[in-house]
Write a protein that binds this DNA or RNA. Structure first.
Length: 305
DNA sequence: TTCCAGGGTAACG
DNA sequence: CGTTACCATGGA
């Protein structure tokens, strides 16, 4: 391909890129990708080089990937396609998920609102685990601020057409930081220790995405044994990085709030209630959770009126 | 001012 | 063992 050419990637039906864009643009503080005129820009790391992607909608059921930075090799093109398919979960058949939603008292109102929305992933393991650790216990505003400081302090910035975008720091860099380095960015001592610890495990090969993908049950066990990774963080990584659609972060406050709003309730559900509700979602717990997160962006939709 | 945030650990009793 | 304090800041 040359710079004016592109690759078309098909998605299973139904697919709505617009819904993905709503999720991608939920925070103006996001620093790892940019959305301009309904096009998504982000650098991805390949074997020996970085590649800028521009992702555009194409009719209803497909995306076009452009390469504004340079003409990639055919191998790089394949990697880009694989990345986009994984990032936006283009290959999942959502029909059975919608069947489940329509039978579910809580979710049935959301099917028509968000039809075609995919579970947006975080394909890079360190980015996924790091983001989860950063997000523990603090509000999303502060979480995005912490991530931005980390990225702009220890990540790499790459430019194009006068603009620039950051890449999440390499685990090799973070593994060699001190707790004090991260505390300067307003990480708590604990958060700093957790993040550095996970970076070290990824560096020395103890923690590997490809190995965890071979056995998701074993992956859950391994994640939970890591200091700083409890049940919520383990399920979060399974859900967004390892693409386990049955992963279920029961402790998630966002999930609790979404259930509260949809029920028109004054109080959040107990953990036991969330377990009970989630039991009806079968192998789609992660997808159901993601759709409920989506409902928090525009809380007016989906509620009984 | 107080309380809660997309939790988890360590120190209690 | 179950329970509690603590983190560290922003927003409601």
């Amino acid at each position: 391909v040359n710079q004016d050419e592109y690759i078309t990637v098909l998605a299973t039906h139904p697919f709505r890129f617009k819904e993905i864009l709503v999720y991608l643009t939920r925070s103006p503080e996001e620093c790892l990708y940019k959305v301009v005129d309904n096009r998504v820009y982000r650098w991805i790391k390949l074997v020996g080089e970085n590649l800028l992607l521009e992702i555009r909608n194409r009719e209803d059921q497909a995306l076009d990937i452009y390469f504004p930075d340079r003409t990639p090799s055919s191998m790089a093109c394949e990697a880009a396609v694989a990345y986009v398919r994984e990032w936006f979960d283009l290959d999942t058949d959502l029909v059975p998920f919608y069947g489940m939603m329509r039978r579910d008292d809580l979710l049935k109102h959301l099917v028509d609102c968000y039809k075609g929305l995919r579970l947006v992933g975080v394909p890079d393991l360190f980015e996924a685990a790091g983001w989860a650790i950063i997000g523990q216990q603090i509000n999303l505003t502060f979480a995005y601020a912490l991530k931005k400081r980390l990225v702009e302090s220890y990540g790499v910035s790459l430019g194009w057409e006068g603009k620039h975008l950051w890449m999440f720091p390499e685990p090799e860099i973070v593994a060699n930081l001190t707790v004090q380095d991260l505390m300067k960015l307003q990480f708590t001592r604990r958060k700093a220790e957790y993040l550095i610890g996970v970076a070290q495990k990824i560096c020395n090969g103890t923690l590997s995405k490809s190995r965890m993908l071979q056995d998701l049950g074993a992956a859950r066990q391994q994640l939970m044994q890591i200091r700083g990774i409890g049940p919520w963080t383990a399920e979060y990584v399974l859900m967004r990085c390892l693409r386990d659609h049955s992963a279920f972060p029961v402790q998630d406050v966002g999930l609790h709030n979404a259930i509260k709003y949809l029920r028109g309730s004054a109080t959040k559900p107990s953990i036991e209630e969330v377990q009970e509700i989630g039991a009806c979602w079968g192998r789609w717990k992660a997808y159901a959770t993601f759709y409920l997160w989506r409902s928090l962006i525009n809380p007016s939709q989906g509620t009984a009126t």
